[in-house]
Each structure stands twice: as structure tokens, then as C-alpha cells.
Design a protein around this nucleic acid. Sequence first.
DNA 1: ATGTGCTAGTGTTCGTGTTCACATGGCGCC
DNA 2: GGCGCCATGTGAACACGAACACTAGCACAT
Lengths: 202, 202
Amino acid sequence: MTIRRLSVYTRCLLQLEEDGVKTVSSQELAERFNLNSAQVRKDLAYFGEFGVRGIGYYVSGLKAELQKILGLHREWPVALVGFGNLGSALFHYKGFARQGFRISAIFDDDPAKCNREVNGVPVLPARELGREVKARGIQIGIVAVPAESAQAVTDQLAAAGIKAILNFAPVRIRAPRDIRLKDVDLSIELETLSFYLAKSAR
Amino acid sequence: MTIRRLSVYTRCLLQLEEDGVKTVSSQELAERFNLNSAQVRKDLAYFGEFGVRGIGYYVSGLKAELQKILGLHREWPVALVGFGNLGSALFHYKGFARQGFRISAIFDDDPAKCNREVNGVPVLPARELGREVKARGIQIGIVAVPAESAQAVTDQLAAAGIKAILNFAPVRIRAPRDIRLKDVDLSIELETLSFYLAKSAR
DNA sequence: ATGTGCTAGTGTTCGTGTTCACATGGCGCC
DNA sequence: GGCGCCATGTGAACACGAACACTAGCACAT
Ligand SMILES: NC(=O)c1ccc[n+]([C@@H]2O[C@H](COP(=O)([O-])OP(=O)(O)OC[C@H]3O[C@@H](n4cnc5c(N)ncnc54)[C@H](O)[C@@H]3O)[C@@H](O)[C@H]2O)c1
Ligand SMILES: NC(=O)c1ccc[n+]([C@@H]2O[C@H](COP(=O)([O-])OP(=O)(O)OC[C@H]3O[C@@H](n4cnc5c(N)ncnc54)[C@H](O)[C@@H]3O)[C@@H](O)[C@H]2O)c1
């Protein structure tokens, strides 16, 4: 199943709830994301029978169910490794906190950047990563260091017992099989765009 | 066909070329990304017969072919809209330029940020977007403004004749059909991770 | 209490993308 | 110059996810 869509539905439901909408049909949800309504129903029915026939889905009930499925009913402490351009943009982004992701420790090898606090969050040298991650029970790590350091950082995170990694470095990194790994590669996104431009120019 | 893989191959070939490797087999490429070797061959054969039977692929030849397919043999001027946290991280990122993407105009509505130059690139108020994009022949736009402004910015980019948009705002934006649209939603990436964590904790 | 209308749930079809397995065809060695 | 090697290219099998179309069940009106 494609989990990404559940996230999209959840965000939409948050909006609908704010707008005071009580129920929503699979049809309406589908139109918002130009999907097929059967798709939406299959996605939702996979995890349980959340809907009411003849009515649709109760917005707040469905929202709560989806949040529980996605693990958004709790707070997730997150470790951010690399406090450069991208790292600090991510840190200052408010959207993560809204979904329960709290960057609760930052690690960077640059002595000029570490051993201080930013908005109450400690910036620490990478050598303290293991201890700090364990002490805080952090399960999610974000890798925002240069490509050449990404594997080393991943190894440190793995050793510290982290369970999931979001990697921004443009390299394929290796992690133990039980660690969930997700790559975000912005160059690739741009390249798919230029591919289509180059093609239609042909 | 999944274009993303072509980008991955290309980056790998760049590395191989630097390392002085002359030829590479589909098998070797596949192992690097744990893919199937038939997959690699299908991907490449789709665009032409680039390989030599019994030998594999000539690294520099294949690299050049893929770059041409992806449109990386030329420079793409890019318009960046929104010069906040994320926008400036993207602007200062060196990786895009390496693939030929050059941010050549920045637009932001905040008067404190615009009407100046950063590293020789003008930061302009959004109202000048149309003129500037046309004048510079920009075909790719990056949307890094808050969600509530994203649709308005998209409309401006569309009116200016842009052909492709990379959107970082966490909303589904609408654009004319002939504009290639790509969304990057980092919250969703984190949520897929927390989904798996929540699931295995169950 | 019964009927009608509406929308969720679901078995099946459909299409795309992946994997398998083999035949094809350059290259170099004899 | 012919022969064997080895990796490509590709048709066929397969798997997965998406779309269709039908069935089931709840709510509300009568
Ligand atoms: N900036 C962007 O917009 C952008 C876009 C796409 C991808 N990326 C990728 O994200 C990563 C970070 O990019 P950036 O622009 O923030 O780079 P940056 O150079 O600004 O920041 C990297 C930070 O990592 C720290 N660091 C280096 N090695 C470390 C280690 N072993 N342990 C801990 N910290 C270490 C450095 O001190 C620095 O502060 C890179 O891999 C880059 O390719 C960035
Ligand atoms: N910062 C991150 O790490 C991050 C991560 C994921 C998603 N995003 C998304 O990226 C977008 C930008 O995030 P940010 O953190 O950079 O926000 P930000 O508030 O730091 O920056 C937004 C910038 O856009 C400008 N702006 C607003 N409306 C505009 C308009 N109509 N025309 C031109 N410029 C306009 C503002 O002046 C500001 O400079 C948001 O949609 C956010 O949800 C950011």
C-alpha cells in the first residue's frame, strides 16, 4: 500500500475539520487530489471500516484513525545531524512540529557551531551522538551532512540504536536491514523535470 | 519508465569516470543500487543500444548519452520564489549547479529581502516575476513560499510561461496541464517513517 | 415499519512496471 | 579467419497497484 496517500488524506482532514466540515465522501476526497474514489476507499478500508455507508467518513473520527496509523498521535523526538544550510532550514521549519516531530538534538562536527543551544535545543559534537540519542530515546535521525560524511554518520546513528533515517545526502547509504531508510534527493527531482523539458523540446 | 533511476545511474557514472573506470556491466550497476540487472538493461536499452555485448557499457559514452536524455548537457536557468529558510538553503546549495541548474533570479515579497543581489543573483519583488522570467527565458521554477501563497505564485509562474515547477509547499497546487509539476513534501517522508515505527511497535 | 437513496466495501479486470531466461552479437584468442 | 566467451537486448511470465462495476448496509423520509 502506498502510505504517502494516507499522509495526504490526513492533512486534508485537518483542513476540513478546521473548516467545520463534519463528514466527507470518498468521492470528495478523491477530487481534491485527482485520484479515483475507489482508490481512496481501498486505502482506508485496508486498515478497518472507518466509513458509514450512505454518509461517508466522519472527518474527526477518520483523522484520529489515520493519525494513529501513521504514528502521529504521539511525539517523535528526532536527531538532526548536520547543521549547515539545509540542516538549519529544517530545524527552523514549523511544519514538522505540527505533525509531532520534534528535533530534540542537533549534531555537527564544526566546533564553531556546537556546544551551544538554539531555541533550547543543544547543538553537540558528533562524538556525543551515541550517548545523547540513547539518553533521549530518539528513534528517528535526519542526515543533512555532505555526501562524503553521510555513511559515517549513518553508522553512528545505527550504532546508537536509531530505527529510521531520512537522508538528504545525494549518495546511496547502507544501513542495517532493520533500519528504515528514506532518501530525499532534490537534484533527482529537478532532473526529472529537465528530462521532460528536454524531451518536448526535441 | 522510471526516470529517477536514470539520474541515479548518471551520478554513479560520474563517480566511476572520476575513479578511472572505463567500462561497467549492468550487473555491477545493479549491485550498487540493489536493483535487478535486467532492470538496468531495460532502462538503458529503452533509449538506444548503448552497450557492447560481452563488454558492458563504456562509462564516459553512457554518461554522455544519459546526460543528453536528462537534459543535463545544457544549463537550465531556474527561478526561485521564496527566499526564506528553505529558499536560501536551496540557493546556497552547490549540487544543483553541478547538474547544470543555475538559479538566476530570486523572487520574494518581503521588501527587506529584495531589491538587492546575492552572489550576483538579483532578489526581486514578486511583481517583477513575469517580466524577468520572460526576459531570461527561464523554464523551471522552484516554489518555496508558505502554503497559503503557493497557488498564487504558481499562477504567476504559469502566466510567465514557465514549463516546470518544483513545489515545496505542503499543498496540492493546480497548474495548467502543459506545466510539469513535481511536489516535494518532507513531512510526508517523515510520516512514512513514523508509520513503520508505529507499526513495528504494535 | 418499510422503502428509497446514497455511499462504503470488495471481487474482478486492467495496465504498467519488474523479473526471468534465452538468444543475439561484438571481441579477442587461437 | 574461425570459434568460444560473455554481457547485452528482448520476448514472455509475473506481480503489483490502480480502475471498474457490482453488492451491501446505514440513514432518513414516508
Ligand atoms: N542545501 C540544500 O538545499 C541541499 C539540497 C539538496 C541536498 N542537500 C544535501 O544535504 C547535505 C547538507 O547540505 P548543506 O547545504 O546543508 O551543506 P553544508 O555544508 O551547509 O552543511 C553541512 C554540515 O554538516 C556538518 N558536518 C560535516 N561532517 C559532519 C559529520 N561527520 N558529523 C556531523 N556534522 C558534520 C558540517 O559542519 C556542516 O555544518 C549535503 O549532503 C547536500 O548534498 C542540500
Ligand atoms: N524550511 C524547511 O525546511 C521546509 C521543509 C519542508 C517544507 N517547507 C515548505 O517550504 C516553504 C517555505 O518554507 P520556509 O521555511 O522557507 O518559510 P519562510 O517563511 O522562511 O520563507 C518563505 C518566504 O516566502 C516569501 N513569500 C511569502 N509569500 C510570497 C509571495 N506571494 N511571493 C513571493 N515570496 C513570498 C516570504 O517573504 C519568505 O521570505 C513552506 O511552504 C514550507 O511549508 C519548508
